[in-house]
Design a binder for these strands. Structure first.
Length: 179
DNA sequence: TAAGTGCGTCGTT
DNA sequence: AACGACGCACTTA
């Protein structure tokens, strides 16, 4: 994605921290809803980082849903409610992939090839991997449920341990050699 | 079986 | 034109 586009998005979105036992996630909201979720970075305590303005009421509502859903997800539980999900920043192909990922139910896994078939480009297997890597809302758009064909772990844009952890709390067993 | 190599394929940069 | 969060066929031990 072009950097200037990123800047535009950054300028029009609001970042809100989410403290969890696992560290501080960051949620970003556009006018349409939750547009990105970031894993805790390095574990910085976050100093007096330019105290962002108190979010508007509708964003506070969305954020409450996000926090609750994230907390549940980290425990392997389904969300009671979710904020609106804004995937509009992706390309056509990426959005097709991301929408497909949302259909993978909790506790199940698909292969990259399966996802490729589902989006109608059976041969675009590697491209699906690329789209997963570009997923702006991990956890809620469950790219961690996509494994390589041999049922090995495959990759993850964040640290692979997050993928392992999320699969684990969902009760998904991986071959020993991935442990 | 297990591990390694090579190559097709396709969206993105 | 180059690069992957892949998959598959095909060696080697």
């Amino acid at each position: 994605m072009q950097t200037n586009m990123k800047n535009v998005i950054a300028a029009r979105t609001q970042a809100v921290p989410i403290p969890t036992p696992e560290g501080e996630f960051t949620a970003r909201y556009s006018a349409q809803g939750l547009c990105s979720l970031e894993f805790p970075s390095g574990g910085k305590p976050r100093k007096n980082k330019a105290a962002t303005a108190r979010p508007a009421a509708h964003i506070r509502r969305w954020h409450a849903a996000t926090c609750e859903a994230l907390s549940l997800a980290l425990a392997g539980q389904p969300p009671k409610r979710l904020p609106p999900i804004d995937l509009s920043q992706g390309t056509e192909f990426q959005q097709r992939v991301w929408r497909t990922l949302r259909k993978i139910s909790r506790g199940r896994t698909w292969s990259y090839a399966q996802v490729a078939r589902a989006v109608g480009n059976p041969k675009a297997v590697r491209a699906v991997g690329g789209a997963c890597g570009a997923n702006p809302i991990p956890v809620f758009v469950p790219c961690h449920r996509v494994l390589a064909a041999n049922r090995r772990l495959g990759g993850f844009s964040g640290c692979l341990n997050w993928k392992r952890a999320l699969l684990k709390v969902e009760g998904i067993r991986l071959p020993d050699y991935d442990a």
